[in-house]
Structure formats: structure tokens, C-alpha cells
Design a protein around this nucleic acid. Structure first.
Lengths: 225, 225
DNA sequence: CCGACTTTGTGCGCACGTTCACAAGCGCGT
DNA sequence: ACGCGCTTGTGAACGTGCGCACAAAGTCGG
């Protein structure tokens, strides 16, 4: 999907599998909390909505950690998936833009529980600078380079309005960040070697709309051939 | 991807194309605002990051609306993509859960600008009921059935904590909603005929982590074959 | 100790999506 | 009016991912 992503075929895990590993990981966390110690590929498949063969093939890409006749050990699998995804590195992220969405992201539990630490909050609006969110003080976006140097963050998250996103992105790149997660509704242009992934809150809604429209008017366009 | 989605191959637009149409749409909106009236497949491809052939094939699935030697008319293309995605229906959505994320979604411009109207806000917390966000009053989740009946919403958005999501989902289904967008980090189980799409804010971050980890330790695992 | 049952791991065929390459079509300059 | 260059639309090759089906391997009961 990402240009950088598709070149990764050389040494192992297919992109399609990588995209599913976080989903497995979440399901496994839930299972662990509910006390389950082992899980079969079929049970896991039902949880995440897929075929059991797909689950097994995905998991086989990171080694043979299942026991035939029994299934997979939940704890062990969590560990291996986490390692494969690089979640054991304890990444620090810098979050730029603390508007509505930025607030939500700063307080989002899914980050810290996956080994990501929001090391710094930045905003361009002077009125927001100084505000404390989740125990962290918002600093001005001009301090970005300093913040990166101090905290050694390696991932940048953009949650600004669309028109500010590219500038923030440039600053992040200039500061040495090479992995960027973009929530702003814009396509960012970056130099080679920088990996950008986009989350668009409205895209999925539009796909939903497509399906709904199709269901509402079935057989609307009969294709001859 | 969704089970329901994969059955849609019969009459036309492939899922992979549908997933890209919103991205094209955004780029085209940007172009329109900047005054461009026509765009070539190559220019559009560069904007969204892809090959020009892919763009042409995608657009060809919704008819031949390009002019050879010139390109595509921006306005016209916006219209056709919007129609194909069903955005001209003027969907109303009901948003359940007005925590951090719910606030962000309620104020998110990307919804209204794409033809979605947030017709109602609901929450289970009595302290939040009555609060006014963006001109709309938050009502109690118990009123869901009534709200659906009143406003004729057809899409439900779940932005609750994970442990409340399934119950809210059941209520939505019971109220007759058959398209659900889930922001809660849980896998929802629904009866056949209901289309659920999930947005997980942390998934993309984990994929980013994978790539970053791979880049940090290149050639870590040499594969023989 | 053995046999029946369960579940993993994987080779294979198929279908989908992506890319290439080119003919058909359209505008523009002359 | 006419040919030249540009861009679309698409057939055909290619690569990737998915699902089936089965052998290998381990557990459990007797």
C-alpha cells in the first residue's frame, strides 16, 4: 500500500499479514485478560473474522510457535507478535496538534498499552501552549527540533488541521523523524526514506456509504456480460 | 475485506477501487479549490501516490468520463465519484459516545463536507446528557430507538469505550441500523446483513512500528531461498 | 503402550489486483 | 483541413494473497 511498504517483500512477512498482526494482538490481549492460556487458530479466526487457514499462515510467518493438537499459547504469541511488530522497542512518539482529535489521541489508551509513549505534545496555537494534558505540558511547535533531540522520539503523529499538516510534516522530517502517522485529511509529500501512513476518519464512512447505497438499490445497474 | 464486501464482485466496482475512491475524491476537492478544472491521470496519481494506470482503471470502473488528450474534468469527476459512493444520498449518522474521540468526531469537518450529517449525539453517562456540542444536544443512549425513528438515520458510529461497544452495537442493530462504523478497540459480532467497519487508531501506528524496526535492523534475518 | 482425535504447518490451484504496453480518440497548431 | 502529440481506455502478463486439503505431530483416554 505504501510505496515503501511494498518493497519489503525480500525478507519475510507479507504486508497483508503485517496489517493483520495488530488485530490478532488485540484479540490475544482480550483472551489473556479473560484467563485463556491457549487458543486454536479456529477460535482466533472467529474472533477476528477470517479463516483459520489464514490465521495459521500468518502466524507461521513469524515462526512455529503452535503446538499441534492444542493450539497456540496466548502469552507466548503476544510476545512474538509484539517482537515482530517492533513494539518491544518502547517507541516514543511526538504528537503535534492538540485540538479535538489531538486531545483524543493524547488520552487514547491504545497507544500506551501497545508500548508507545507519547513523549511530547506540541501545538502552534500560543493559547494552547502550557496546557497540561494527561500530565504532559503542551509546548510550542517551534520547539520541535529541541524536543526531538531531548526525548529521542522516533515517530511523529500529526493531528493538525489540513492546511498546517504539510508544514508540520516538513519540520518533523527536518528534525530527523522518519516515521509519520498522519490524521490530517491531506496527502503529504515527503522525501524518500520517510514512511508516512495516513488515517482518514471519513474514508471508512464513505466505504460504508457505498455498501449501504448498493444494498438500498440492488440490481440497479445490470451488466450484460 | 468485510465478508459482506467480498460478495459484491458481481456487478462492478472492485473493493480495492472503492477503498481508493474517497482518496481521489479528497484530492479532487483540493484541486477544485485551487482552481484547476481538469486533471490528468498522471497528475492525480502523483497526488495520491500511485500509478497512473491504476488511476485510469479505477476511474474506468465508473464509466468513461475522461477526454483523451486532455484528462478528466474535475467537477464532473467529483460528481460521479460522489454518486458512486452514495454520498449524494445525504446520509444521517448517529454518534454514540461523546468522550474525547466522540467530541473530535462530532466536530470533524470531513463528515459534513462529504455529505454526512451527524443527526444525533448519544451517551450513556447522565452527566454528559444535555451538553451541547456543535449545536446539537447530547441525549441519553436509551433514547436510541426513538432517535432512529425520528431522524431516520441509517448509519451508526460507535465511539464508546471498548467494554460498552458491543452493547451499543446490539442496540443499534435492534433499532434497525445496518451500517456501523466502530472506533472502539473491539471486534463486534453482528447478525448477517449488518455491515461493520472498524477504525483502529493504533493499528496504523503498529504497522509504522514494524517498518521502523525493520529499517533500524536491516538484514536481521537472512532467508536462504 | 497404542490408537483415535485434534490441531498445526504447508504445498497447490485459483482469483484478484497491479502493471505494462499500445491502440483509439481528441485537441491544437499550422 | 490535416497531421502531430498528448491522454484515455483496455487487453494481457505478472505477482500476490487466499482457501482448500492433507500430512506431520502432538495429546489424551484406555
Amino acid at each position: 500500500m505504501t510505496e515503501l511498504g511494498s518493497r519489503r517483500r525480500r525478507v519475510g512477512v507479507p504486508d497483508a499479514t503485517v496489517a493483520r498482526l495488530p488485530v490478532y494482538l488485540r484479540a490475544l490481549h482480550t483472551l489473556a485478560e479473560s484467563g485463556r492460556t491457549t487458543v486454536s487458530s479456529q477460535a482466533l479466526a472467529q474472533l477476528v473474522g477470517g479463516g483459520s487457514a489464514k490465521v495459521r499462515k500468518d502466524l507461521s510467518h513469524l515462526g512455529s510457535y503452535g503446538t499441534r493438537g492444542v493450539g497456540y499459547e496466548v502469552e507466548e504469541l503476544v510476545l512474538h507478535i509484539s517482537r515482530e511488530l517492533g513494539l518491544t522497542h518502547g517507541w516514543s512518539v511526538v504528537l503535534v496538534g492538540v485540538g479535538n482529535l489531538g486531545h483524543a489521541l493524547a488520552g487514547y489508551g491504545g497507544f500506551s498499552s501497545r508500548g508507545f509513549e507519547v513523549a511530547a505534545l506540541l501545538d502552534a496555537d500560543p493559547r494552547r501552549v502550557g496546557e497540561v494534558i494527561g500530565g504532559r505540558r503542551v509546548r510550542h511547535v517551534g520547539e520541535l527540533a529541541a524536543v526531538v533531540a531531548e526525548t529521542g522520539v522516533s515517530i511523529g503523529v500529526i493531528a493538525t488541521p489540513a492546511d498546517a499538516a504539510q508544514e508540520v510534516c516538513d519540520r518533523l522530517v527536518a528534525a530527523g523523524i522518519s516515521s509519520i502517522l498522519n490524521f490530517a485529511p491531506t496527502v503529504l509529500t515527503v522525501p524518500d526514506g520517510v514512511d508516512v501512513r495516513k488515517v482518514d476518519l471519513a474514508v471508512e464512512l464513505q466505504i460504508l456509504s457505498f455498501h449501504q447505497a448498493r444494498r438500498g438499490t440492488p440490481g440497479k445497474r445490470e451488466v450484460s456480460a
